[in-house]
């Protein structure tokens, strides 16, 4: 197992705006590598540079052992790409889309038909073969896009928010497919902002404002958090959240349903302060207990106003 995707000091500017600001990482062969970050953090820009769609302003990148900038065609043979927005032809049928990409990837005549049928089956779209792609529901579209991206059997797959706008059941099925691919030794680079999806990844990189702010396995990321996470149950969660954010921003308050999470570096000193705040503002606290960090907490920690680089 070696490194199959590598970025060194990747930078992309759009005018005065720096979308990706000196990003470096390496992905092992056969890994599911998750790129986690809020909207506009630079996830899509990074993935587009890796796929050779967008030229980096500076920096180096290799995909499948090939320098993407010098040998784009070779690199592109080794990758399958699924963009965030459905980007197959809506006025073509399912089968015509598959046929089109079979031609673009120059699948050999003998095996072409077989592969096309296989991808149709993998997408579970046999019944929809002659339907226009534009008429398919969201989940089907995603599967067709994945099928077309895998048509040439690439060892590396890039998925840019593959399950955005897809219903929960389709999402689960989709991740089962991804797990299958990984089981076959394919390397998967996926961007997402769903925490449950991030848990499926072998390794994660958290990106914010174009910079990687944390990286590691999900467990490492959770364990690396210092201090104590308190879960506060209150009848006025929204007011409580606003209050803490105003008065104690360094605790990175976050709302999880009706529960408020705050992280305290020094529990003894901070808990007093917190309770006093609530009391002064007439916020009733039902319970307050220490819990272990979830990935979502890590995310809020790192991305929050008091977020520190936790690498």
């Amino acid at each position: 197992m070696g490194i199959t995707i590598e970025a060194r000091n990747l930078v992309r500017r759009f005018g005065v705006f720096t979308a990706v600001d000196g990003v470096s990482f390496a992905v092992q062969e056969g890994e599911i590598f998750g790129f986690l970050g809020p909207n506009g953090a630079g996830k899509s820009t990074t993935i587009k540079m890796l796929c050779g769609i967008l030229a980096p302003t500076s920096g180096e990148l290799w995909v499948g052992g090939v320098d993407v900038r010098t040998y784009p065609e070779e690199a592109k043979h080794r990758i399958g790409y699924m963009s965030q927005k459905f980007s197959l032809y809506e006025d073509l049928t399912v089968w015509e889309n598959i046929e089109f990409y079979a031609g673009i990837y120059r699948l050999p005549k003998e095996s072409k038909g077989g592969w096309m049928e296989k991808m149709l089956a993998l997408s579970g779209l046999e019944e929809e073969k002659h339907r226009l792609a534009g008429d398919l529901p969201g989940g089907y579209k995603q599967r067709l896009a994945l099928g077309c991206a895998l048509l040439h059997d690439p060892p590396i797959i890039f998925l840019d928010e593959p399950t955005a706008g897809v219903d929960p059941i389709s999402r689960r099925n989709f991740w089962e497919l991804i797990a299958q691919m990984a089981g076959k030794g394919k390397t998967i680079f996926v961007t997402t902002h769903y925490m449950d999806e991030a848990e499926h990844c072998d390794r994660l990189a958290l990106i914010n404002n174009g910079k990687i702010v944390a990286a590691g396995t999900p467990t490492q990321l959770k364990e690396r958090q210092t201090g104590v996470l308190l879960e506060v149950a209150t009848l006025q969660p929204i007011r409580a959240f606003a209050l803490v954010r105003r008065e104690l921003p360094e605790t990175n308050p976050a709302l999880f349903g009706s529960l408020l999470h705050v992280s305290l570096s020094d529990r003894a000193a901070m808990e007093e302060r917190l309770l006093e705040l609530f009391k002064n503002e007439n916020i009733t606290v039902d319970s307050m207990s220490a819990i272990s960090f979830s990935l979502e907490d890590v995310f809020c920690q790192v991305m929050g106003p008091g977020g520190t680089v936790g690498v």
């Binding site: 592109k76 963009s83 980007s87 197959l88 032809y89 990837y105 077309c148 890039f158």
Partner: peptide
Amino acid sequence: TFEQVAASP
């Protein structure tokens, strides 16, 4: 759709 094509060889 050009984006998908651009990611191909």
